[in-house]
Nucleic acid binder design. Structure first.
Lengths: 207, 207
DNA sequence: CGTCATCCTGACCGTTTGGTCAATAATTTC
DNA sequence: GAAATTATTGACCAAACGGTCAGGATGACG
């Protein structure tokens, strides 16, 4: 896609610092709520210097989004069509929950974007994301036909996994406020719950 | 709480128009992303006139939030402790999904607020919301002890219901983009899926 | 060391934003 | 229908915002 310019070490360092700072600021305040001054300050650079590396605020944002979508879909791609259906899906749930634990900023960045109508990544959703989800749904359907997985709408099964796992990153303010937990503790609990929950829902009825 | 000022008919009409307009604008763009001009325009009023009825942009926002939280929790309060456990919870899931269908703006308003750390309603979450959830969790626990409901962490069960139902309002851009549905159709599908899904997960194992 | 490209910044600009205010218009009240 | 109250607005303001630019500092390299 993008031409690989010969990046100097300073460029590499500062581009990374800016993207990391922007990830924090954008995920906390959304695109409109974030300011270049906040990003520059968080990156330890001056505002004009930030704009020396990225053409605009929007350029930083889209660079973040497109760079992250890949990582975000990896757990879905890692489902093994030759594995045991329930275990494979439970594994996917756990990997997705793990991402909520390790990358809450990334999760909230997407959440912010999609809640507001996904104006800047709708094409990526309609394209590669839809394709991957459709393919996975087909795999699930096959497993259901073989009687190795409870019969449920496969697309909505994927949605439920996204919803229940990302919830712990996107709405952690609410969750920790109700559970009165600190740090990661609520995700430890979620791990146990989601394993039980999905196992019950997914195990096919004995014939 | 608030003193009931003798509201004139004009006050009533314009306050409602402003809150309705603000609901649309805030849910689409978040607090920071929304502007008073957008709200005023959507309400059919001039900006200074909007500020004649509300002291500030923030006052409009908090008026919306606190006025809506009640409505938002009603479905949870409607769970009947004397009903059949699985049916009661399935009913709650359906009512909550119905709210995603009828009040997507309200759902996205809360989503925006909580994703960004719930800075303006954290106390209401830690107070009345937590209390209601704790009480409901206790009810669920009792049902589990009686063997009338599968044993699962009751708090996280509530979270899963919030996550899976609100997902269809908050992330409808993504869902409809993947399903290629129009309007409400994705929620019709969700209804069937969630009924099957939760029935499987909640029915206790036969003794 | 010299020179050339890269890196960085203070000062600045036009626009947008939340909010004010004095003056005017519309309604209600007596 | 006059007086008093409520409603509405155009003009305005200060601050914040995204972004520009000329020029200086710093680094890479022969």
């Amino acid at each position: 896609m993008t031409i690989q310019q010969p990046q100097t070490r300073i460029q590499k360092k500062n581009r990374e610092a800016i993207l990391d700072a922007a990830l924090g600021v954008f995920s906390d305040h959304g695109f409109r709520g974030a300011t270049l001054d906040q990003i520059a300050s968080a990156a330890g650079l001056s505002k004009p210097n930030v704009l020396y590396y990225f053409a605009s605020k929007e350029a930083i944002y889209t660079a973040l989004l497109s760079g992250l979508l890949e990582t975000w879909l990896d757990p879905l791609r890692a489902i093994d069509p030759d594995g045991e259906p329930v275990d494979e899906i439970l594994g996917y749930v756990m990997r997705k929950l793990q991402m909520s634990r390790e990358y809450p900023r990334e999760s909230r960045l997407f959440a912010n974007e999609i809640v507001q109508g996904a104006p800047r990544i709708l094409d990526q959703i309609e394209g590669p994301l839809k394709e991957l989800v459709d393919r996975t749904a087909g795999l699930f359907l096959g497993w259901m036909d073989d009687g190795r997985l409870a019969r449920l709408d496969p697309h909505h099964l994927v949605f439920s996994i996204w919803a229940t796992t990302q919830h712990y990153a996107d709405f952690s303010a609410q969750v920790t406020s109700i559970l009165q937990t600190e740090g990661d503790a609520h995700i430890d609990q979620a791990e146990t719950f989601l394993r039980d929950f999905y196992r019950r829902a997914l195990l096919p009825d004995s014939p």
